[in-house]
Amino acid sequence: MTWKQVFTSSVGKKLVMAFTGIFLILFLIVHAGLNACIWANDGGEMFNKGAHFMGANVVPRILEIGLFVGLILHIVQGLMLELDNRKKRSVGYAVAYSDGSKWYSRSMGILGTLILLFLVLHLSDFWFPNRAHQNFVLGEEIDLYAKMKETFSVLWVVIVYVLGCLSLGYHLAHGFQSAFRTVGVHNRKYNLMLVSLGLGFSVIVTLLFALMPLSFYFGWIN
């Protein structure tokens, strides 16, 4: 079994989804944790310090490259899996079957696409202007806290962000536990634990991220 055969097999493709998915989950923890500094309500001092650490240091910036590679692998493989799987049944059923699975488990491709669309907006709101300001090296950064405040003063942006967070939440509600099954966790006691942990994680991450634009829009922080 060559590496190529492994990673182009159906199980190998799923392993790529799972490992990149778990990597993205780890990223989310860091991202949500750092952004939560806005609630220090100190005019963005703490948040900007954290953001500066991530943006102006070599190590996080090298990790950032890894993040993009992982994200792109996840997106490309995810969309290919979805399209491929759809081709496996050319004649559909007159009466659809929906027992045993949640709607969001059946909609990972659509939820992922929504996240992707959201990411385009999100990166062009913050990441791109900031890196452009730095000339894509380790230059001077913009005041990201002020940028957030400005961005989240527009209602439609806030709504799109909240919807983006919801898509991510449902993606994770399935993805979290699914990823661990994919890498082979089959013990009953862990599976039960991972389902609750996954749902808890999805709810917390969704709430944290969604509350950020809302906090600015409604002036809960200044």
Binding site: D99, G100, M108, H186
Partner: peptide, 27 residues
């Protein structure tokens, strides 16, 4: 097709084969 762990199979299986077998296969 490739499995995405939706759980539909387990719900319909006449012999109640557990989906945890899929995780075992992955391992």
């Amino acid at each position: 097709g490739a499995c995405t762990n939706t759980g539909a199979c387990e719900a319909t299986c006449p012999k109640e084969i557990s989906i945890s077998n899929i995780a075992r296969l992955n391992q």
